[in-house]
């Protein structure tokens, strides 16, 4: 059974992709098609579009993503510590987790102060 568990997500994923592809491709066979002149136009409230949507994205978003990465990875590091907290009869992990979280909050305060997290 262990084996099954290990390959399950993988095989499930392959199956889902195949199923999704089937669903997406089937309508090409069974649905009628239209041939209006504006059929392939990008929709924008019925008006012709001005310019493309593929514009430069401001560096701000990138910083945003970096901040997220920092927090997420840090949080992931706490996971093992938290799991074994129960079996360790010591205050050491508590202090460790505590110190870690406090550093994390300091960085949050810093990020807020620097207005990195203002969304526009």
């Amino acid at each position: 059974m262990e084996q099954l568990y290990n390959i399950l997500p993988f095989s499930m994923g392959i199956g889902t992709l195949a199923f999704g592809a089937f669903l997406v491709l089937l309508p090409y066979l069974i649905s009628p098609r239209s041939k209006g002149r504006f059929r392939g136009d990008t929709y924008e409230s019925g008006e012709p579009i001005i310019g493309e949507a593929w514009v430069q994205v401001r560096a701000h978003y990138y910083i945003y993503a970096l901040v997220f990465m920092a927090f997420d990875v840090e949080t992931a590091f706490i996971v093992p510590c938290v799991v074994i907290l129960r079996s360790w009869d010591s205050w050491l992990p508590v202090i460790e987790v505590g110190a870690f979280l406090i550093i994390l909050s300091l960085s949050l305060v810093y990020a807020l102060k620097k207005k990195v997290l203002e969304w526009e």
């Binding site: 924008e44 409230s45 019925g46 001005i50 310019g51 430069q56």
Partner: peptide
């Protein structure tokens, strides 16, 4: 910057 664009809101 080239990050600005035009967006039609309406008529539909």
């Amino acid at each position: 910057l080239r990050s600005d664009f035009f967006l039609n809101m309406g008529p539909q």
